[in-house]
Design a protein around this nucleic acid. Structure first.
Lengths: 217, 217
DNA sequence: CTTCCAATGTTAACGTTGTCAACATAATTC
DNA sequence: GAATTATGTTGACAACGTTAACATTGGAAG
């Protein structure tokens, strides 16, 4: 079983015939390229070059370019879920927790726009073909539903199917994140992340919580 | 001036050296390919083939593949704006108008998912490089702001910067549309458009209008 | 009407890409 | 230690985006 390799190959150029960690190296290299030039310019051959292997080596670990992208997206979802979970640690009451979840959602998107695009975009058209991806993606949705249920139990959110309410909340943050990532909201193109964007997120989240309706009616 | 060509070349194979309408034909062909196989599989050469011209002919009308895609996106935004405007014709009161705008937004996205992706996705990274695209895109946002202002005047939506409120409403419908297009919402993958999706949109829109907060507090 | 030019189309080529087949070497198992 | 499996390499193919050099056309100017 012991699949542990001599992961420490220090730094010597004594690159042996076998790489030792090609799969991870490819995913990391692909991620770096995506960050630098966008998914469109990701190239299997360049990922191979970055890892210091030949052009065809990636095919021992990925069936296709799409499979490599799927692995990057999977990694993205894991980091995404982690950040979301951490964001709820600080918050004590359910309402704050829900809000922080939204803030974390948008923050991740603006901090890692290209990763976010790969995660939700059409570069992997059929995500269900890659079960690890599908699972990681699914896992990042559930905290939202849980937070809504907690809010209901605490009496701060109204009754109703929590899944349905979660769709509304999810749509809101996902839409805001997408619009920010596509540089579509005035005044929020350049820095991406930052306190201004965080304030914007809180305001939008408050709109959904309080409603747009005029209350005095 | 008279730029009108003999647009009616009937159907004879008397294809002269000059196509007569290549630009439009290329955009139409590209759109067809995008619908059939997705943007990733769009090829300048195939667009040329569909139009019955040689591989290099498109370069007389588009500087690059990206420029062709930008033209497709521009067309998409025009159709998008048209559908949104039409949807508000039937509604009489401002609140219904706002709601119908959201329904139209999501309906367009689910009816033309690939076009929607091209319009908002990263296939044209810098949309401001193509001013017609940027204008068409901008034009499709304003009806939302107007509808919100009307609602405020009619006293159904609370006071506040209409642009800020519009961002919330926009985020909501854009997020729902994106999630539906990426087949991310359970039970809404297969048909795409349909009464179920429309009901979902109305419900989500109502959530934003009424708020998620428990009112009896 | 003729002449000429700009617009529009064609052919051929270059470098790059995704992918595959055939082969080479290392690691693991018996 | 031999054999099998995992992993990497080389070389090739067709397709792609893009460019350069050349061909044909339609319309404007004379």
């Amino acid at each position: 079983m012991a699949k542990a390799k001599k992961a420490a190959k220090s730094k010597g150029k004594s690159r042996s015939y076998h790489h030792g960690n090609l799969r991870d190296a490819l995913v990391q290299g692909a991620l770096a390229t995506i960050r630098e030039k966008g998914v469109q310019h990701l190239t299997l051959r360049e990922a191979a070059r970055r890892a210091g292997v030949s052009q065809a080596a990636p095919y021992r670990h990925f069936d296709s370019k799409e499979a490599l992208i799927a692995a990057v997206a999977e990694d993205g979802f894991r980091a995404f879920a982690k950040e979301m979970e951490e964001s709820t640690q600080k918050a004590m009451d359910p309402k704050t927790r829900l809000q922080e979840l939204g803030v974390a959602y948008v923050r991740f998107a603006t901090k890692h726009p290209d990763q976010f695009r790969v995660m939700f975009g059409p570069d992997v058209p059929d995500k269900s073909k890659y079960s690890p991806l599908a699972e990681a993606s699914q896992a990042s949705f559930s905290p939202l539903v849980l937070a809504i249920q907690e809010c209901q139990r605490a009496g701060v959110v109204r009754e109703g199917d929590p899944l349905e309410l979660a769709v509304s909340a999810w749509s809101l943050v996902h839409g805001l994140a997408s619009l920010l990532v596509d540089a579509r909201i005035e005044g929020h193109q350049h820095p991406g992340v930052g306190p201004r964007t965080e304030m914007l997120t809180r305001r939008v989240a408050m709109d959904l919580f309080e409603g747009l309706k005029k209350q005095s009616n």
